[in-house]
Every structure is written in C-alpha cells, then in structure tokens.
Amino acid sequence: MKDIYFQALAGGALLGIGAFLLLYLNGKIAGISGITYQAIASITSQNSWRWCFLIGLIGAPLIATRLGFSLPDQISAPIITLAIAGLLVGIGTRMGSGCTSGHGICGIGRLSKRSIVATLIFMSTAVVTVAISRQML
C-alpha cells in the first residue's frame, strides 16, 4: 500500500477523534459548514465554542507545517470558477444541512438515513460535475 494511503488513514482517524470529542465532551455535531454559518450568523457568548473550534481548525496548519506536512502551494482554478463554486458550496451546505464532515463522517457514523442519502447525492453530483468539466476542457 502506498504511503499516502497510510497518511490518509491517519489524517482520517484524527478527523474522527476530533468529531467524536466534540460530541462526547460538548454534545455538538462537528459539521464544519454548520459551525461556520452559526458562528457568523449570531455573535453571542453562547457561540464562543464555535469560534474556538474555528480558531483550532484554521490554526492547525501552523502545527502541521512544523511536523513536515504542508498546504498546497497554490489553488489552480480560475477566480470566476472559485467564486461560483464557493457560492454553490455555501448555499448547498446550508440548504442540505451539512457537508463532508457533518454528513460524511458524523452523520454516516451515526447511521443517519438523511446523511447517507445526502452524501451519496453530493458525491455522485460531484463525480458527474468533474466528468463534464474535464470533458469540456
């Protein structure tokens, strides 16, 4: 098995531990899109844990880079594509109540029917989108 797969498993396990701890210690689902939206939607003291979660998430590369891991050097996509994609990801994750973390790990991990359906839909839609966009290039 390639080294990258072990790295992926280890990183995945960290995602799982983080998500579990948030539920076991705070009683909250680690849905990154939901936490982000709630954090910006109302800035109250009840929301402080969300901001703390986001600080940890955004600050993580400061530690990861010291351990020899890195962020991608560049995001190579046209600005207009990124703007449209960002808008769709934002609208879609709020309408659909979750993203890859909330549905893909936390929801499937609880065997939630809604999350299993949502994950199957967004994955297959993304596969079709990539197939179409790569055919057109």
Binding site: G12, L14, I17, L21, F53, I55, A64
Partner: peptide, 14 residues
C-alpha cells in the same frame, strides 16, 4: 472545541 477543531484541521492537512 478548540482542541477538536485543531485535531480536525490537522487531520485535513495530514
């Protein structure tokens, strides 16, 4: 929450 966020950020990077 900070710790959970940190673990998940590390997980996504690693």
């Amino acid at each position: 929450a900070l710790f959970a966020g940190l673990l998940m950020g590390l997980g996504l990077t690693i």
